[in-house]
Simulated assay, not measured.
Amino acid sequence: MKVRLMTQSDLSAAADIHRLTFIRQEQSLQWLQCNLNAFPRFLCFVAEDKKCIVGYIIWSQKSGFRPKAILELEQLAVSPNHRNKGIGRALITHSLPLIKTQLALNNATIKHILVTTRADNFAQSLYQSTLGAEIEATISNLYSSDEVLMIARDLDL
């Protein structure tokens, strides 16, 4: 499996994964297109296995371009047929060095990583084990349920 920057030609496959993963959200292709077009504020990556897109991750730089960047893991999705195979973990761990390289072009490093997710999302353990993110706050009834705000602090990656 390879993790690489998302391209225009990946959008249709990534939109299919988005549609199947985030069933309450609409306009999957338009959502992903907007994020891809906002590079380098949004850094979009795909996981490709045997020339098939099996997942994607979107990172965003928060509150401007800074020497010590605050990143948000904006969205992570894996195709239902490829879940529980370590692809989500690989998307996180393999995209971070690529982000580090991109930030270095502007003499920047990663300071903190922010993640928001449903309070009942099993992926919290993934964010804790891969990033060291800890729950900082719970926000009641934000989207479709309670959301937790997780932060991995002082990374200096």
Rank of each mutant, 00 (worst) to 15 (best):
F22W: 04
D156K: 13
M150S: 12
T117S: 07
P97M: 10
E74C: 12
N106Q: 14
V46Q: 07
A90F: 05
L149A: 13
I70G: 09
R41M: 08
S140Q: 12
K100G: 09
L11V: 00
Q33P: 05
F42D: 04
V78H: 00
F65R: 15
Q75Y: 12
S63T: 11
N84R: 10
E26A: 05
P40Q: 00
K85V: 00
N84C: 05
D10Q: 07
M6Q: 12
S125E: 02
L96R: 14
L126G: 03
S95D: 03
P40G: 01
P67M: 07
L43Q: 10
T109Y: 09
D154Y: 06
S125C: 04
A90C: 06
A77I: 04
P97D: 04
L126M: 02
P80E: 00
T116K: 14
S145T: 14
A77D: 00
V54P: 11
L5K: 15
N141C: 03
R66A: 09
I70S: 12
T138N: 14
S63G: 11
T117C: 08
E74Q: 15
E147H: 15
D10E: 04
A13W: 08
Q33A: 06
Q8I: 03
V115M: 08
K100T: 10
S129M: 02
V54M: 12
D146R: 02
T21Y: 07
L149Q: 11
V78T: 02
K2S: 11
H112L: 05
P67D: 06
S79F: 08
V78L: 02
I57F: 06
T117E: 02
R83M: 09
Q33R: 09
L98I: 05
Q33C: 01
T7Y: 14
L32R: 07
L114I: 15
C52E: 11
E147Q: 15
I113C: 10
R24D: 15
A152V: 02
